[in-house]
């Protein structure tokens, strides 16, 4: 798969349409990296479909954007000192 056919609009992991180009290869034209600004998943255009294609991404690793705010914070933020 090359840059012209890889998915660059839908996050393979959370299906959000909140994807942008993260960076491109130092040697131009070799690859593009994308990142999802909803779940911070990133992928490279040269990776296998299981990493780049929402339909091929395995169900057990998918997440729902609606669940993100309730994911536990580790470590928790302590209260400010008075």
């Amino acid at each position: 798969m090359n840059d012209t056919t890889v998915n660059d609009t839908i996050c393979p992991r959370c299906d959000a349409e909140n994807v942008r180009v993260l960076t491109t290869s130092p040697v131009p034209g070799r690859w593009t990296m994308y990142v999802c600004d909803t779940c911070i998943y990133s992928w490279r255009s040269t990776e296998p479909r299981s990493a780049t294609d929402p339909l091929a991404y395995p169900a057990e690793f998918k997440i729902d954007p609606a669940d993100i705010p309730s994911i536990p914070a580790i470590p928790t933020v302590p209260p400010r000192r008075r």
Binding site: I40, S42, W43, E47, A51, F61
Partner: peptide, 9 residues
């Protein structure tokens, strides 16, 4: 990426 389902690099 190290392992297939790591969230990124």
């Amino acid at each position: 990426r190290l392992n297939s389902y790591d969230v990124g690099c």
